[in-house]
Computed example of a mutant assay.
Amino acid sequence: MLVAQETGAPVGGTEPPPPRPPGPRRRILSAAVALTALLATLTVLSLLVGTGSSPVARAWDFLMGDPSARADAQLRLAVLDVRLPRTLAAVLVGVSLGAAGCLLQAVTRNPLAETGLLGVNSGAALGVVIGLTYFGVRSSYALLGWALAGGMAASAVVLLLAASGRGAASPLRLVLAGSALGATFHGMTSYVLLSTQSTFDTFRYWTIGSLAGLKTSDTYPLIPLIVIGLLVAFGSARPLAALALGDDGARALGHRPGLIRVVVAGAVTLLAGSAVAIAGPIAFLGLLAPHAARAVTGPRMAAQLALSALIAADVMIAADIFARVAIRPWETPVSVLLAFVGGPLLIWIARSRRLSTAGGTA
C-alpha cells in the first residue's frame, strides 16, 4: 500500500478517470479563434497575391512600409487599388452570405434554404437588366445600386405575398412566394435580354459572380447596411432559438412567430442584397457555411451565426485568391470555383441521414 502511494500507482487497483472532452463553449471559442486567425492570414495573403507580375516579396515589403517599395507606383496600384478593394469585398460578401444563409435555414427550418429563397438574386438580376437597358447605366457603382434596389424590392414583394390572407408569414408561404417570384423575375429578365442584345455582355459579366474590377468606393456605401443586417441577425438569435421549438412553443415563450419571420427576412434582404450587389449571384456559400457551423455549435443560434459568417468569409477569400492564380494571367470567376466545391457537398448533404434534423436544430 505504501509502495503504491509513493510511486504514484493507483491504490486498490482503480484506474484514473478518462479526460473529459472539452465543453461546448470551449469548443466554440476555439473554433472562433481559429477561424479568425485563418481570416487574418488569408487577408494578408490576398494583399500579397495577384494576377500581375509583382513579386510576393515586394508586396510584403510594401505592407511593411519599405521606402523603395512604397515609391513603386505600379506596386502601389496593385496592392491598394486592385487587391485591397477585392479583399474587403470578399470579407463583406462572405460574412453577409454566411449570416443570411444561417438565418434563412433557421427561420424556415429548412436545411437546404439559401440566400436566393426570398427572390433576392432574381430581383437583383432584373434590377441590373432594367438599369442597363432603360436607363443607360454603365458604371459599376450604378449597377451596384440597381442590383441592391432590385433585391430589396423582390424581398419586399415576397413578404407581402407570404403575409397576405389569413395568418402570418409561415415558412411554407415564404418558400412558395420566393420560388414563384424568382421564376417570374427570371422570365422577365430573359425577355428583356432577348429583346435588347446590347446589354447581354455587361449582364453576363455581372451574373457570373466575380470580385474583379471592384473599387473601394463601390463597397463602402454598403457597409452600414451589412452592419445593420448583422445587428438585427444577432438580436434575433433568441427568438429564432424559440422558433425552432415550433410556432406554439415560441408563442408559449412570449414570442410572435410572424413578426420574427418578417424581421429576419428584412435582415436577410440587407445582407444578401448587399452581397449580390457587390459580387453578383454567389451560389452554395450561404447554404454550406451554416451546416459547417452547426457541426460545431449544435443548436446555439448566436454561435451559429458567428461561426457561419467566419466560415463563409474564409471560404470566400480563399476562393478569390485561388481564382487569381489558377489560370494566370487570366482569372477564374470565384462563383465557378465555389460551384465546383459546393455541388458535391450539396449532394453529400442531401444524402445525409441527418438532413431532416439539420434545419430543426437551428
Rank of each mutant, 00 (worst) to 15 (best):
A4T: 12
E6Q: 13
P10H: 12
T14F: 07
E15V: 15
P19H: 07
G23P: 09
G23S: 15
P24F: 02
R25Q: 13
R27P: 04
A31E: 09
L35G: 05
A40C: 14
L48D: 04
T51Q: 12
S54H: 11
V56Y: 03
D61V: 00
F62R: 08
L77D: 14
D81F: 00
R83P: 06
L84P: 05
R86S: 10
T87A: 15
L88V: 15
V93R: 04
V93N: 08
V95N: 02
A100R: 05
L103E: 03
L103S: 03
T108Q: 04
R109L: 11
L112M: 15
A113Y: 09
G119N: 05
A125N: 14
A125S: 15
I130S: 10
F135M: 13
L143Q: 15
L143G: 10
A147V: 03
A147I: 03
A147C: 08
V158H: 03
L174K: 01
A180D: 07
Y191R: 11
V192A: 11
L194H: 11
S195Q: 14
T196D: 14
R204V: 00
I208S: 07
G209P: 06
L214Y: 10
P224Y: 04
I226N: 01
G229E: 05
A244W: 12
R256L: 00
V264H: 01
V268D: 02
L270G: 02
G273W: 02
V276K: 01
A277W: 05
I278F: 01
I278C: 04
G286I: 06
H291A: 10
V296M: 02
T297V: 14
L307Y: 07
A313D: 06
A313L: 07
F322E: 09
V325R: 11
T332A: 08
A339P: 03
F340R: 05
P344G: 12
P344N: 10
L345G: 09
I347C: 06
S352F: 06
G360N: 11
A362K: 01
